[in-house]
Design a binder for these strands. Structure first.
Lengths: 197, 197
DNA sequence: CTAGACGCCAACCGTTCGGTTGGCATAGGG
DNA sequence: CCCTATGCCAACCGAACGGTTGGCGTCTAG
């Protein structure tokens, strides 16, 4: 068997994503992750330092994949709505990410710290800023953060909707989420203080 | 010091509510709860059986207090909106309950099992059924569940709103939540299948 | 060809976990 | 006034926790 360190790292991150999403930070043991990955747990400490920092790496990794190449098409608030829709599709394709974000906001000290850290963030934020005429990068970053989290919450809400109304088609729930996220994003824009305006 | 068993139970339930709300089920140790309550941890097992069943007791206890005497005033969808507003006020007065619900839905097997178990539930559900012409008790119970959970999520949403717009007054955030919850409750009613209609 | 750096693992460390046990003190019925 | 049931606690249990260590095998620079 050839030696492949990047594959080892990847297997650990994948297993970490599964385990943390399923049982949270406190509920997941480092042993379980290493067992799931088929790798000795000492590798986690060699690669990532501590359980806590490993969680950050896992979340950042998954968020990078979630936001990679997800750009606004066009300008105006409709573009924001379509963008939220495609973001929704990615959440639906990989429910673990939504759970990871929920866990982080509940049990970790700094809420959504990883969201602000994600590498694709500033790029998407600048697009949002251009399309929506938000003055500076800091507030655009905040806006992006809020929209991401809104869609996350909306995803949970539709899961509930599905529970209440089992027959509802997934497509209908998707459009409901898009409109919901768009409306809330507009409201967020509205209440957000804009200096120099 | 006089012996007072109900006070011992109460102190454990209170401490359990604080600890579970702060760090979740897996993140809370039975020792920490007993230390917080100033009671030996063996009492938890004598009174409630296991850590898991103790969590159920804590959540049911807090939910009973949350929903106690919270009735619909009047009829129609506006009444539902006002009801959601008062529910929101109670959530705001005791944020622990919202966190407990969020924890349960994330990390425990059966989502919202305690919500369906709460003693005040059927009473409130019958009021909702009358006001909104929902056919049978089962679907009314589901409706109540969804509304409660919607408002719970709304709590997360406003926490985010506060983060994005720190200067926004709490009152403004409340009305936003009420409208939000009302609209979503109406949507839930809309997509919910109603037999015999 | 060889020396050392490095990926990797088995085994181990002290601590904390959920849960149990034995006994002391007290309350209340006879 | 005693006897039993019960509230309560200190101490304990095996297991599992996050984290570390020593050494084995394998790549690679010189």
């Amino acid at each position: 068997m050839p030696r492949d360190t990047t594959s080892t790292r990847e297997r650990l991150l994948d297993a970490g994503g599964r385990q943390f999403a399923a049982t949270g930070f406190a509920g997941t043991s480092v042993d379980a992750v290493s067992r799931d990955a088929g790798v000795n747990k000492e590798r986690i400490y060699a690669y990532f330092g501590s359980k806590r920092r490993f969680f950050d790496h896992v979340l950042t990794h998954r968020l990078d994949g979630l936001l990679d190449g997800l750009d606004l098409d066009g300008h105006g608030e409709d573009a924001l709505g379509r963008w939220a829709g495609r973001l929704w599709d990615r959440y639906a394709a990989d429910p673990d990410v939504a759970r990871l974000l929920a866990w982080e906001s509940l049990e970790l000290d700094e809420p959504a710290a990883a969201v602000q850290r994600v590498s694709s963030c500033s790029e998407v934020a600048s697009h949002l800023r251009d399309a929506l005429a938000v003055p500076d990068d800091a507030s655009a970053r905040q806006l992006l953060l809020s929209v991401v989290m809104l869609v996350t919450s909306a995803w949970t809400l539709t899961a509930l909707t599905a529970l209440v109304a089992p027959g509802t088609a997934a497509a209908a729930r998707r459009t409901a989420v898009v409109e919901h996220a768009t409306a809330l994003a507009r409201a967020t824009l509205l209440v957000s203080p804009r200096p120099g305006r």
